[in-house]
Design a protein around this nucleic acid. Structure first.
Length: 498
DNA sequence: TATCAGCGCGCC
DNA sequence: AAAGGGCGCGCTGATA
Protein backbone atom coordinates (compact mmCIF):
# COMPACT_ATOMS: atom_id res chain seq x y z
CA UNK A 1 0.00 0.00 0.00
CA UNK A 2 1.20 3.46 -0.88
CA UNK A 3 0.74 5.61 2.21
CA UNK A 4 2.93 8.50 1.17
CA UNK A 5 1.28 11.90 1.42
CA UNK A 6 0.92 13.52 -1.97
CA UNK A 7 2.22 16.92 -1.01
CA UNK A 8 3.43 19.11 1.83
CA UNK A 9 -0.09 19.58 3.20
CA UNK A 10 -0.55 15.88 3.78
CA UNK A 11 3.00 15.48 5.02
CA UNK A 12 2.62 18.36 7.41
CA UNK A 13 -0.77 17.21 8.71
CA UNK A 14 0.50 13.71 9.48
CA UNK A 15 3.75 14.99 10.93
CA UNK A 16 1.94 17.21 13.40
CA UNK A 17 -0.78 14.59 13.78
CA UNK A 18 1.76 11.97 14.82
CA UNK A 19 3.12 14.31 17.46
CA UNK A 20 -0.35 15.16 18.75
CA UNK A 21 -1.54 11.55 18.85
CA UNK A 22 1.59 10.41 20.64
CA UNK A 23 0.80 13.03 23.26
CA UNK A 24 -2.73 11.62 23.52
CA UNK A 25 -1.28 8.13 23.93
CA UNK A 26 1.13 9.24 26.62
CA UNK A 27 -1.63 11.12 28.44
CA UNK A 28 -3.91 8.10 28.71
CA UNK A 29 -7.43 7.75 30.00
CA UNK A 30 -8.23 6.99 33.61
CA UNK A 31 -9.72 3.59 34.37
CA UNK A 32 -11.79 2.51 37.36
CA UNK A 33 -9.79 -0.63 38.02
CA UNK A 34 -11.91 -1.63 41.01
CA UNK A 35 -15.05 -1.56 38.90
CA UNK A 36 -13.26 -3.36 36.07
CA UNK A 37 -12.28 -6.28 38.28
CA UNK A 38 -15.73 -6.55 39.83
CA UNK A 39 -17.36 -6.47 36.43
CA UNK A 40 -15.03 -9.14 35.08
CA UNK A 41 -15.74 -11.37 38.03
CA UNK A 42 -19.50 -11.00 37.63
CA UNK A 43 -19.32 -11.57 33.91
CA UNK A 44 -17.28 -14.73 34.38
CA UNK A 45 -19.89 -16.00 36.83
CA UNK A 46 -22.66 -15.26 34.35
CA UNK A 47 -20.82 -17.09 31.59
CA UNK A 48 -20.43 -20.04 33.92
CA UNK A 49 -24.22 -20.03 34.41
CA UNK A 50 -24.70 -19.86 30.65
CA UNK A 51 -22.38 -22.85 30.27
CA UNK A 52 -24.32 -24.80 32.87
CA UNK A 53 -27.58 -24.29 31.00
CA UNK A 54 -26.14 -24.93 27.57
CA UNK A 55 -24.19 -28.05 28.51
CA UNK A 56 -27.25 -29.61 30.12
CA UNK A 57 -29.49 -29.02 27.11
CA UNK A 58 -30.71 -31.69 24.74
CA UNK A 59 -29.16 -29.75 21.86
CA UNK A 60 -25.72 -30.12 23.42
CA UNK A 61 -26.34 -33.87 23.59
CA UNK A 62 -26.94 -33.78 19.86
CA UNK A 63 -23.80 -31.68 19.43
CA UNK A 64 -21.71 -34.20 21.40
CA UNK A 65 -23.19 -37.08 19.45
CA UNK A 66 -22.29 -35.36 16.19
CA UNK A 67 -18.76 -34.10 17.01
CA UNK A 68 -17.62 -36.33 19.86
CA UNK A 69 -14.41 -35.22 21.53
CA UNK A 70 -14.09 -32.29 19.11
CA UNK A 71 -17.41 -30.78 20.16
CA UNK A 72 -16.80 -27.09 20.84
CA UNK A 73 -19.51 -24.63 21.83
CA UNK A 74 -17.38 -21.77 20.45
CA UNK A 75 -17.15 -23.27 16.97
CA UNK A 76 -19.30 -21.48 14.41
CA UNK A 77 -18.82 -24.18 11.74
CA UNK A 78 -20.09 -26.74 14.25
CA UNK A 79 -22.99 -24.51 15.20
CA UNK A 80 -23.93 -24.35 11.52
CA UNK A 81 -24.12 -28.13 11.32
CA UNK A 82 -26.18 -28.38 14.51
CA UNK A 83 -28.57 -25.54 13.67
CA UNK A 84 -29.19 -26.35 10.03
CA UNK A 85 -28.55 -30.11 9.71
CA UNK A 86 -29.53 -31.44 13.12
CA UNK A 87 -32.20 -28.98 14.28
CA UNK A 88 -33.42 -28.37 10.74
CA UNK A 89 -33.51 -24.57 10.92
CA UNK A 90 -33.90 -22.77 7.62
CA UNK A 91 -30.75 -21.22 6.14
CA UNK A 92 -31.63 -17.55 5.70
CA UNK A 93 -28.19 -16.08 5.13
CA UNK A 94 -24.90 -17.18 3.65
CA UNK A 95 -21.35 -16.01 4.18
CA UNK A 96 -19.16 -14.45 1.51
CA UNK A 97 -17.79 -17.90 0.68
CA UNK A 98 -21.23 -19.48 0.54
CA UNK A 99 -21.32 -21.24 3.91
CA UNK A 100 -24.51 -21.14 5.98
CA UNK A 101 -24.13 -18.09 8.18
CA UNK A 102 -24.27 -18.41 11.95
CA UNK A 103 -24.19 -14.73 12.81
CA UNK A 104 -26.87 -13.15 14.99
CA UNK A 105 -28.85 -11.90 12.00
CA UNK A 106 -29.00 -15.40 10.51
CA UNK A 107 -30.97 -16.52 13.58
CA UNK A 108 -33.18 -13.44 13.75
CA UNK A 109 -36.80 -14.27 14.45
CA UNK A 110 -36.02 -17.88 15.31
CA UNK A 111 -37.61 -18.73 18.61
CA UNK A 112 -35.20 -21.37 19.85
CA UNK A 113 -34.13 -21.24 23.51
CA UNK A 114 -30.80 -22.97 22.84
CA UNK A 115 -29.85 -20.50 20.09
CA UNK A 116 -30.97 -17.55 22.24
CA UNK A 117 -28.84 -18.72 25.16
CA UNK A 118 -25.90 -19.29 22.84
CA UNK A 119 -26.19 -15.76 21.45
CA UNK A 120 -26.39 -14.32 24.98
CA UNK A 121 -23.26 -16.27 25.92
CA UNK A 122 -21.40 -15.04 22.80
CA UNK A 123 -22.19 -11.43 23.74
CA UNK A 124 -20.86 -11.94 27.26
CA UNK A 125 -17.71 -13.64 25.96
CA UNK A 126 -17.18 -10.75 23.56
CA UNK A 127 -17.59 -8.21 26.37
CA UNK A 128 -15.14 -10.10 28.55
CA UNK A 129 -12.40 -11.10 26.12
CA UNK A 130 -12.35 -8.25 23.61
CA UNK A 131 -13.07 -5.46 26.07
CA UNK A 132 -12.80 -5.93 29.84
CA UNK A 133 -9.89 -8.39 29.82
CA UNK A 134 -7.95 -6.37 27.25
CA UNK A 135 -8.47 -3.11 29.09
CA UNK A 136 -7.34 -4.79 32.30
CA UNK A 137 -4.22 -6.18 30.65
CA UNK A 138 -3.18 -2.86 29.10
CA UNK A 139 -3.97 -0.57 32.02
CA UNK A 140 -0.85 0.87 33.64
CA UNK A 141 -0.03 0.34 37.33
CA UNK A 142 -1.26 3.85 38.12
CA UNK A 143 -4.64 3.13 36.53
CA UNK A 144 -4.45 4.63 33.06
CA UNK A 145 -5.11 3.13 29.66
CA UNK A 146 -2.88 4.20 26.78
CA UNK A 147 -4.42 2.98 23.50
CA UNK A 148 -2.23 3.32 20.41
CA UNK A 149 -3.44 5.55 17.55
CA UNK A 150 -1.92 4.76 14.15
CA UNK A 151 -1.74 7.01 11.11
CA UNK A 152 0.09 4.51 8.92
CA UNK A 153 -2.25 1.54 8.60
CA UNK A 154 -5.43 2.57 6.82
CA UNK A 155 -5.81 2.69 3.04
CA UNK A 156 -7.98 5.83 3.19
CA UNK A 157 -5.52 7.69 5.45
CA UNK A 158 -7.89 7.46 8.36
CA UNK A 159 -6.44 6.43 11.74
CA UNK A 160 -6.72 3.11 13.51
CA UNK A 161 -6.36 2.21 17.17
CA UNK A 162 -5.06 -0.86 18.99
CA UNK A 163 -3.94 -2.31 22.34
CA UNK A 164 -6.79 -1.99 22.96
CA UNK A 165 -8.80 -0.58 20.08
CA UNK A 166 -10.27 2.58 21.60
CA UNK A 167 -12.41 3.13 18.50
CA UNK A 168 -14.84 0.23 18.92
CA UNK A 169 -15.91 0.40 22.55
CA UNK A 170 -19.58 -0.71 22.72
CA UNK A 171 -22.30 1.95 22.77
CA UNK A 172 -25.26 0.89 20.59
CA UNK A 173 -26.31 -1.94 22.88
CA UNK A 174 -27.03 0.05 26.05
CA UNK A 175 -26.41 -2.90 28.36
CA UNK A 176 -23.06 -3.69 26.83
CA UNK A 177 -22.19 -0.01 26.51
CA UNK A 178 -22.80 0.49 30.20
CA UNK A 179 -20.78 -2.57 31.18
CA UNK A 180 -17.70 -1.40 29.27
CA UNK A 181 -17.86 2.39 29.35
CA UNK A 182 -18.44 2.57 33.09
CA UNK A 183 -14.76 1.64 33.36
CA UNK A 184 -13.69 4.95 31.76
CA UNK A 185 -13.60 7.79 34.30
CA UNK A 186 -12.28 11.35 34.51
CA UNK A 187 -9.30 12.45 36.56
CA UNK A 188 -10.07 13.96 40.01
CA UNK A 189 -12.13 17.18 39.78
CA UNK A 190 -12.53 16.68 36.02
CA UNK A 191 -15.28 15.71 33.60
CA UNK A 192 -15.10 13.75 30.37
CA UNK A 193 -16.14 15.81 27.36
CA UNK A 194 -16.83 14.39 23.92
CA UNK A 195 -16.87 16.62 20.84
CA UNK A 196 -18.30 15.11 17.65
CA UNK A 197 -18.44 16.63 14.20
CA UNK A 198 -22.05 16.89 13.08
CA UNK A 199 -22.60 14.78 9.97
CA UNK A 200 -18.93 14.92 9.09
CA UNK A 201 -18.86 12.55 6.14
CA UNK A 202 -22.00 14.01 4.61
CA UNK A 203 -20.43 17.48 4.89
CA UNK A 204 -17.15 16.35 3.36
CA UNK A 205 -18.94 14.47 0.61
CA UNK A 206 -20.81 17.68 -0.25
CA UNK A 207 -17.44 19.45 -0.50
CA UNK A 208 -16.33 16.92 -3.10
CA UNK A 209 -19.53 16.53 -5.12
CA UNK A 210 -20.87 20.09 -4.64
CA UNK A 211 -24.42 18.85 -5.02
CA UNK A 212 -26.66 21.90 -4.44
CA UNK A 213 -29.48 19.82 -2.99
CA UNK A 214 -27.17 18.10 -0.53
CA UNK A 215 -25.60 21.45 0.38
CA UNK A 216 -28.97 23.01 1.06
CA UNK A 217 -29.95 20.05 3.25
CA UNK A 218 -26.81 20.71 5.28
CA UNK A 219 -27.16 24.49 5.42
CA UNK A 220 -30.89 24.88 5.96
CA UNK A 221 -31.89 23.78 9.47
CA UNK A 222 -35.55 23.55 8.46
CA UNK A 223 -34.71 20.86 5.93
CA UNK A 224 -34.14 17.23 6.88
CA UNK A 225 -32.92 14.75 4.30
CA UNK A 226 -33.65 11.64 6.36
CA UNK A 227 -37.16 12.78 7.24
CA UNK A 228 -37.85 13.51 3.58
CA UNK A 229 -36.58 10.10 2.51
CA UNK A 230 -38.57 8.45 5.30
CA UNK A 231 -41.63 10.13 3.86
CA UNK A 232 -40.91 9.03 0.32
CA UNK A 233 -39.92 5.45 1.19
CA UNK A 234 -42.89 4.78 3.45
CA UNK A 235 -45.39 7.00 1.59
CA UNK A 236 -45.89 9.46 4.44
CA UNK A 237 -46.31 13.19 4.79
CA UNK A 238 -43.51 15.04 6.59
CA UNK A 239 -45.51 15.22 9.79
CA UNK A 240 -46.24 11.50 9.69
CA UNK A 241 -42.55 10.52 9.80
CA UNK A 242 -41.71 9.32 13.31
CA UNK A 243 -38.24 9.31 14.85
CA UNK A 244 -37.91 5.58 14.22
CA UNK A 245 -39.14 5.89 10.66
CA UNK A 246 -36.53 8.58 10.06
CA UNK A 247 -33.90 6.35 11.65
CA UNK A 248 -34.76 3.55 9.22
CA UNK A 249 -34.55 5.84 6.21
CA UNK A 250 -31.21 7.18 7.39
CA UNK A 251 -29.49 3.92 8.29
CA UNK A 252 -31.15 1.51 5.87
CA UNK A 253 -31.39 3.68 2.77
CA UNK A 254 -29.64 7.06 2.68
CA UNK A 255 -26.25 6.04 4.12
CA UNK A 256 -26.15 2.65 2.35
CA UNK A 257 -27.00 4.41 -0.95
CA UNK A 258 -24.29 7.00 -0.34
CA UNK A 259 -21.79 4.19 0.28
CA UNK A 260 -22.83 2.36 -2.89
CA UNK A 261 -25.60 -0.05 -1.89
CA UNK A 262 -28.74 -0.39 -4.03
CA UNK A 263 -32.46 -1.10 -3.83
CA UNK A 264 -32.27 -4.91 -3.75
CA UNK A 265 -30.24 -4.71 -0.53
CA UNK A 266 -32.03 -1.71 0.98
CA UNK A 267 -35.61 -2.79 0.38
CA UNK A 268 -35.55 -5.97 2.54
CA UNK A 269 -33.88 -4.03 5.39
CA UNK A 270 -36.44 -1.22 5.14
CA UNK A 271 -39.29 -3.74 5.04
CA UNK A 272 -38.00 -5.66 8.08
CA UNK A 273 -37.53 -2.41 9.95
CA UNK A 274 -41.27 -1.74 9.81
CA UNK A 275 -41.84 -4.67 12.18
CA UNK A 276 -38.56 -4.46 14.12
CA UNK A 277 -39.05 -0.75 14.82
CA UNK A 278 -42.81 -1.20 15.34
CA UNK A 279 -43.29 1.69 12.94
CA UNK A 280 -46.53 3.66 13.04
CA UNK A 281 -47.88 6.63 11.17
CA UNK A 282 -46.79 9.44 13.51
CA UNK A 283 -49.66 11.10 15.34
CA UNK A 284 -52.03 8.20 14.67
CA UNK A 285 -52.49 4.62 15.83
CA UNK A 286 -52.13 3.24 12.33
CA UNK A 287 -49.36 0.66 11.92
CA UNK A 288 -47.15 1.41 8.94
CA UNK A 289 -47.89 -1.95 7.32
CA UNK A 290 -51.60 -1.07 7.37
CA UNK A 291 -50.81 2.35 5.94
CA UNK A 292 -48.80 0.79 3.11
CA UNK A 293 -51.57 -1.72 2.47
CA UNK A 294 -53.94 1.22 2.04
CA UNK A 295 -51.55 2.33 -0.71
CA UNK A 296 -51.70 -1.11 -2.31
CA UNK A 297 -48.42 -2.44 -0.94
CA UNK A 298 -48.76 -5.67 1.00
CA UNK A 299 -45.55 -7.55 0.26
CA UNK A 300 -41.82 -7.01 -0.11
CA UNK A 301 -41.47 -8.57 -3.55
CA UNK A 302 -38.50 -10.26 -5.18
CA UNK A 303 -35.10 -8.84 -4.17
CA UNK A 304 -32.95 -11.83 -5.06
CA UNK A 305 -29.41 -11.26 -6.25
CA UNK A 306 -28.31 -14.39 -8.02
CA UNK A 307 -25.06 -15.33 -9.78
CA UNK A 308 -26.98 -17.11 -12.55
CA UNK A 309 -30.21 -15.17 -12.82
CA UNK A 310 -28.87 -11.74 -11.92
CA UNK A 311 -30.95 -9.13 -10.14
CA UNK A 312 -34.66 -9.68 -9.61
CA UNK A 313 -37.34 -7.59 -11.30
CA UNK A 314 -39.92 -7.09 -8.57
CA UNK A 315 -43.56 -6.77 -9.62
CA UNK A 316 -45.18 -3.33 -9.65
CA UNK A 317 -47.19 -2.91 -6.46
CA UNK A 318 -44.53 -4.52 -4.28
CA UNK A 319 -42.43 -2.63 -1.73
CA UNK A 320 -39.23 -3.56 -3.56
CA UNK A 321 -40.54 -2.08 -6.79
CA UNK A 322 -41.42 1.09 -4.92
CA UNK A 323 -37.95 1.35 -3.35
CA UNK A 324 -36.49 0.86 -6.82
CA UNK A 325 -38.46 3.88 -8.03
CA UNK A 326 -37.42 5.93 -4.99
CA UNK A 327 -33.80 5.05 -5.71
CA UNK A 328 -34.14 6.21 -9.31
CA UNK A 329 -35.53 9.51 -8.09
CA UNK A 330 -32.80 9.71 -5.45
CA UNK A 331 -29.91 9.55 -7.93
CA UNK A 332 -31.46 10.78 -11.20
CA UNK A 333 -33.33 13.68 -9.71
CA UNK A 334 -32.73 14.65 -6.08
CA UNK A 335 -28.95 14.09 -5.93
CA UNK A 336 -28.13 14.06 -9.64
CA UNK A 337 -25.07 16.28 -9.19
CA UNK A 338 -23.73 13.87 -6.57
CA UNK A 339 -24.37 10.99 -8.99
CA UNK A 340 -22.55 12.79 -11.78
CA UNK A 341 -19.60 13.49 -9.48
CA UNK A 342 -19.33 9.80 -8.59
CA UNK A 343 -19.29 8.90 -12.26
CA UNK A 344 -16.75 11.51 -13.24
CA UNK A 345 -14.52 10.92 -10.22
CA UNK A 346 -14.33 7.22 -10.97
CA UNK A 347 -13.74 7.80 -14.69
CA UNK A 348 -10.86 10.14 -13.91
CA UNK A 349 -9.38 7.62 -11.49
CA UNK A 350 -9.55 4.99 -14.23
CA UNK A 351 -7.71 7.31 -16.62
CA UNK A 352 -4.98 8.30 -14.15
CA UNK A 353 -4.69 5.23 -11.91
CA UNK A 354 -4.81 7.39 -8.79
CA UNK A 355 -6.69 10.24 -7.19
CA UNK A 356 -5.69 13.03 -4.81
CA UNK A 357 -7.60 14.18 -1.75
CA UNK A 358 -8.23 17.78 -0.77
CA UNK A 359 -6.03 17.24 2.26
CA UNK A 360 -2.85 16.37 0.39
CA UNK A 361 -2.86 12.60 -0.06
CA UNK A 362 -2.58 10.49 -3.20
CA UNK A 363 -4.32 7.11 -3.33
CA UNK A 364 -2.80 4.84 -5.93
CA UNK A 365 -3.81 1.23 -6.55
CA UNK A 366 -6.61 -0.95 -7.87
CA UNK A 367 -9.92 0.32 -6.55
CA UNK A 368 -13.50 -0.71 -7.27
CA UNK A 369 -15.99 2.06 -8.00
CA UNK A 370 -17.38 2.22 -4.48
CA UNK A 371 -13.89 2.31 -3.01
CA UNK A 372 -12.67 5.08 -5.31
CA UNK A 373 -15.63 7.34 -4.50
CA UNK A 374 -15.73 6.63 -0.76
CA UNK A 375 -12.05 6.77 0.16
CA UNK A 376 -11.45 10.50 -0.35
CA UNK A 377 -14.52 11.31 1.75
CA UNK A 378 -13.59 8.98 4.59
CA UNK A 379 -9.98 10.18 4.64
CA UNK A 380 -10.67 13.89 4.40
CA UNK A 381 -13.39 13.59 7.06
CA UNK A 382 -10.93 12.16 9.53
CA UNK A 383 -8.39 14.84 8.59
CA UNK A 384 -10.85 17.49 9.78
CA UNK A 385 -10.88 15.78 13.17
CA UNK A 386 -7.11 15.36 13.20
CA UNK A 387 -6.58 19.03 12.37
CA UNK A 388 -8.95 19.96 15.20
CA UNK A 389 -7.16 17.68 17.64
CA UNK A 390 -3.74 19.09 16.74
CA UNK A 391 -4.92 22.66 17.17
CA UNK A 392 -6.88 21.94 20.33
CA UNK A 393 -3.75 20.59 21.97
CA UNK A 394 -1.73 23.52 20.67
CA UNK A 395 -4.24 26.13 21.87
CA UNK A 396 -4.78 24.69 25.32
CA UNK A 397 -1.03 24.45 25.83
CA UNK A 398 -0.60 28.06 24.79
CA UNK A 399 -3.35 29.07 27.22
CA UNK A 400 -1.66 26.99 29.93
CA UNK A 401 -4.83 24.98 30.47
CA UNK A 402 -4.75 21.62 32.26
CA UNK A 403 -7.35 20.04 30.00
CA UNK A 404 -6.18 16.85 28.28
CA UNK A 405 -7.23 15.18 25.04
CA UNK A 406 -7.41 11.48 25.89
CA UNK A 407 -8.81 9.79 22.80
CA UNK A 408 -10.16 10.07 19.28
CA UNK A 409 -12.76 8.11 17.28
CA UNK A 410 -12.61 9.20 13.61
CA UNK A 411 -14.98 12.14 13.91
CA UNK A 412 -14.91 12.73 17.64
CA UNK A 413 -12.50 13.70 20.37
CA UNK A 414 -12.62 12.74 24.05
CA UNK A 415 -11.10 15.11 26.60
CA UNK A 416 -10.59 15.14 30.35
CA UNK A 417 -11.44 18.64 31.54
CA UNK A 418 -11.09 20.34 34.94
CA UNK A 419 -14.59 21.65 35.65
CA UNK A 420 -13.39 25.26 35.75
CA UNK A 421 -11.98 24.95 32.22
CA UNK A 422 -15.15 23.60 30.64
CA UNK A 423 -16.26 26.98 29.29
CA UNK A 424 -12.90 27.99 27.87
CA UNK A 425 -12.25 24.59 26.36
CA UNK A 426 -15.65 24.46 24.69
CA UNK A 427 -15.24 27.96 23.31
CA UNK A 428 -11.87 26.98 21.93
CA UNK A 429 -13.00 23.82 20.17
CA UNK A 430 -16.08 25.50 18.73
CA UNK A 431 -14.08 28.36 17.33
CA UNK A 432 -11.48 26.03 15.84
CA UNK A 433 -14.08 23.93 14.05
CA UNK A 434 -16.61 26.48 12.91
CA UNK A 435 -14.29 29.40 12.13
CA UNK A 436 -10.61 28.43 11.84
CA UNK A 437 -10.93 25.11 10.02
CA UNK A 438 -12.92 26.45 7.04
CA UNK A 439 -10.45 29.36 6.86
CA UNK A 440 -7.46 27.03 6.63
CA UNK A 441 -9.10 24.68 4.12
CA UNK A 442 -10.95 26.65 1.47
CA UNK A 443 -12.35 23.43 -0.03
CA UNK A 444 -14.74 23.34 2.94
CA UNK A 445 -17.84 24.93 1.44
CA UNK A 446 -20.42 23.97 4.05
CA UNK A 447 -20.57 25.04 7.70
CA UNK A 448 -18.74 22.73 10.09
CA UNK A 449 -20.29 22.15 13.49
CA UNK A 450 -19.17 20.35 16.60
CA UNK A 451 -21.60 18.70 18.99
CA UNK A 452 -21.02 18.38 22.71
CA UNK A 453 -21.60 15.55 25.12
CA UNK A 454 -20.68 15.86 28.78
CA UNK A 455 -20.19 13.20 31.44
CA UNK A 456 -21.10 15.04 34.67
CA UNK A 457 -18.80 15.10 37.74
CA UNK A 458 -18.41 11.77 39.56
CA UNK A 459 -19.77 10.03 36.46
CA UNK A 460 -18.33 7.77 33.76
CA UNK A 461 -18.04 7.71 29.99
CA UNK A 462 -21.29 5.75 29.89
CA UNK A 463 -23.12 8.69 31.45
CA UNK A 464 -22.49 11.16 28.66
CA UNK A 465 -25.36 13.53 27.93
CA UNK A 466 -25.83 15.68 24.88
CA UNK A 467 -25.94 19.42 25.52
CA UNK A 468 -26.13 22.38 23.21
CA UNK A 469 -23.40 24.99 23.03
CA UNK A 470 -23.55 28.26 21.09
CA UNK A 471 -22.10 31.73 21.52
CA UNK A 472 -20.38 30.81 24.74
CA UNK A 473 -23.49 29.47 26.45
CA UNK A 474 -24.60 25.93 27.25
CA UNK A 475 -28.23 24.98 26.99
CA UNK A 476 -30.28 21.92 27.77
CA UNK A 477 -33.82 21.32 26.52
CA UNK A 478 -33.84 24.87 25.16
CA UNK A 479 -32.91 26.51 28.48
CA UNK A 480 -29.58 28.25 29.01
CA UNK A 481 -27.36 27.45 31.98
CA UNK A 482 -23.99 28.55 33.35
CA UNK A 483 -21.65 25.56 33.17
CA UNK A 484 -21.64 24.95 36.95
CA UNK A 485 -25.45 24.74 37.02
CA UNK A 486 -25.43 22.63 33.90
CA UNK A 487 -23.08 20.09 35.47
CA UNK A 488 -25.25 19.85 38.59
CA UNK A 489 -28.35 19.37 36.49
CA UNK A 490 -26.72 16.68 34.37
CA UNK A 491 -25.50 14.97 37.50
CA UNK A 492 -29.06 14.82 38.83
CA UNK A 493 -30.21 13.50 35.50
CA UNK A 494 -27.71 10.66 35.68
CA UNK A 495 -28.59 9.87 39.28
CA UNK A 496 -32.32 9.75 38.60
CA UNK A 497 -31.86 7.47 35.60
CA UNK A 498 -29.86 4.93 37.62
C1' DT B 1 4.15 -23.79 18.03
C1' DA B 2 3.32 -20.30 14.59
C1' DT B 3 0.67 -18.48 10.86
C1' DC B 4 -3.20 -17.81 7.89
C1' DA B 5 -7.97 -17.45 6.07
C1' DG B 6 -12.56 -17.21 7.33
C1' DC B 7 -16.03 -15.74 10.25
C1' DG B 8 -18.24 -12.99 13.63
C1' DC B 9 -18.83 -8.58 15.96
C1' DG B 10 -17.68 -4.19 18.24
C1' DC B 11 -17.15 0.92 16.37
C1' DC B 12 -17.23 5.22 12.78
C1' DA C 1 -21.72 -2.87 -15.41
C1' DA C 2 -21.96 -3.21 -10.64
C1' DA C 3 -24.30 -3.84 -6.52
C1' DG C 4 -22.19 -1.17 1.45
C1' DG C 5 -16.76 2.25 2.65
C1' DG C 6 -13.01 1.62 6.72
C1' DC C 7 -10.84 -0.69 11.02
C1' DG C 8 -8.96 -4.43 15.42
C1' DC C 9 -9.56 -8.57 17.89
C1' DG C 10 -11.07 -13.37 19.39
C1' DC C 11 -11.71 -17.74 17.88
C1' DT C 12 -11.68 -22.12 14.85
C1' DG C 13 -9.62 -25.18 11.85
C1' DA C 14 -6.14 -26.08 8.39
C1' DT C 15 -1.40 -26.13 7.38
C1' DA C 16 3.60 -25.73 7.88
Amino acid sequence: MNITPQDIRGLDLFHRGTEALSEVEATGIRIDVGYLDTARKELKAQIKEDDKELYSSKEWLLWRRRFGQNANIDSNPQLGVIAYNELGLEVKKRTEKGAASTDEEAFEGIDNPFISKLIRRKKRIKALTTYLDNIRREVSPDGFLHPVFNLNTVITYRSSSEKPNFQNMPIRDPEMGKLIRRAFIPRPNCVLLENDFKGLEVCVSACYNKDPVLISYIKDPTKDMHRDMGGQLYMLKKKEVSKKTRYGAKNKFVFPEFYGSFWAQCAPALWEWIDLGKLMVEGTDIPLKVHLANHGITELGDCSIDDENGIASPQPGTFAHHVMQVEKDFWNNRFRVYARWKKEWFAEYLRKGYFDTYTGFRLEGVFARNEAVNYPIQGSGFHCLLWTLIHTIRAKRKAKMSSLVVGQIHDSMLSDIPVDELDDFSAMVNELVSIELPKVWDWIIVPMQIETEICPPECTWYDKKEVHYADGVFSLDGKQFPSSALLKLLQQKVKSSE
